[in-house]
Simulated scan of single mutants.
Amino acid sequence: MMEWVDWSNALERAVCWLDDVHWQISRGDDLQLALESLFRGLTLLHRKWDREEWTRFCLEIVRTHPLREVIHQCPYTRHGFEKPRGYAGDAVLIDYLYEEHQGPLSPMGRDIYHFLWNQSGPRSVRERRELLAQEIDATAERVHQPRILSVACGHLREAEHSRAVAEGHVGDFIAFDQDPDSLEVVAQQHPSHLVRPVCGTVRSILMGKTSFPEMDLIYSAGLYDYLSEAVASRLTRLLFGMLRPGGRLLVGNFATRTPDAGYLEAFMDWWLLYRDENQVRAFASEINPEEIASVEQFRDSVQNVIYMVLTRR
C-alpha cells in the first residue's frame, strides 16, 4: 500500500492520493471504504515520514486541500480544528467521543462522525471514563468518605458513572480545571455540592501556589499527553506528595503508534505527546523510591493508552 511513501517526490504523490480520496467521496463511492483508505494512509504516513516532512504535509498540503472542507462536515473534526475554547482537546470535544452527537448534521458529516466515533482512539476515551469511575468506586470501598482530586477534570463525566458518587459515599471530590465553562457544567451535573469545582492552572500547582493535601485518590488521565517530560515529572512528584499513606495517583498517556494520531494531526490540528512504557514510568523519576509502596502499569483493552498507578507508602 502506498509504495511511494519513501520516494523523493512523496509529498507530490500525497497530493495526488488526497485528490483520489476526494474524488471517490465526491462522486458518491462507498464512503466507508474511502474513509478507511484515508485513515490507514494517514497512519502509514505518520509512522514512515520524519517529523519535518509529516508536519509540512499537515500544514501545507492538508490544510489547503479541498478534502479538508469535506471532512470538516464532521462536527467533532471541525470542533477539534477550530478550537473554540482556545486550546486543543477541550471538554466539549471529548463529549463528542462519549455519546454520539444527535444534533442537526449533513448526511456526509453524520457518516464521517460515525466512522470516527468507532475508531480505536475514541473507544479508548470511553474506556478511560469507565476505568476512572471504577477507580473512584474502589477508593470509596477502601476508604470511608475518601478525598478525591481530578486534575484537568473537563466535564468530569466519569463521576456520572460512579456508584459511589451517586450514593454519596465520597467525602470531598475536587474537580480542578483551568476552564470555568467546563466547571460550570460540572456544577450543573452535581448540584448537591458533593463535587467541588475549583478553577486553577497546572502552573499554579507547579509553582506551589495550589495544593490539596491528604487525598486518597488523585488522577489525571487526559493532561499528560500535553506535558513535557520535565513538567510531567515535577507534577507527578507534587501530586504524589498530596496523597495520604495508602493513597493512589493514577495518570495516563496515549501510547506511541496509536493509529488515530495521523488523522488527529492532519485534519484536526490536534498534536499529543505519545509515549511508551519507559517514558510513562519516568514520570515518577523525581519521587523518592522509598515513599512508593507499589507501581502498576498497564494498557487499555485496545493498547492505546498507558496507565500508571503509584501507591504511597
Rank of each mutant, 00 (worst) to 15 (best):
E100H: 11
P122C: 00
F115P: 06
A152D: 11
C153M: 05
L35D: 00
W271G: 03
L223Q: 02
P197Y: 03
G200D: 02
A266P: 06
L93A: 08
L273E: 14
I306A: 08
L235W: 00
D269Y: 07
V62H: 08
T256M: 12
E277R: 14
D6I: 11
E158P: 06
E184P: 00
R13W: 03
E127M: 10
E127I: 06
W17F: 08
S120C: 06
W17I: 06
I205V: 15
I205Y: 00
N278Y: 12
T64F: 13
D20M: 12
R257F: 14
E135Q: 13
H144P: 10
D30A: 11
R56P: 06
Q145P: 08
M108A: 10
R237N: 12
L93E: 03
S294E: 10
V202L: 12
L59S: 13
E99P: 08
S8A: 14
E12S: 14
A10M: 11
D276P: 08
D6C: 10
G262M: 05
T256I: 15
S120I: 14
V231L: 10
E184N: 09
C199W: 08
T64H: 15
L18A: 03
N304E: 15
L97I: 07
H101M: 09
V15S: 09
Y226F: 08
Q178W: 12
D225C: 03
I205H: 02
Y219V: 09
I71C: 11
I25G: 00
M1V: 14
D29A: 14
Y76R: 09
S220K: 00
L206W: 01
Y98A: 03
L131E: 09
I25R: 02
H46P: 08
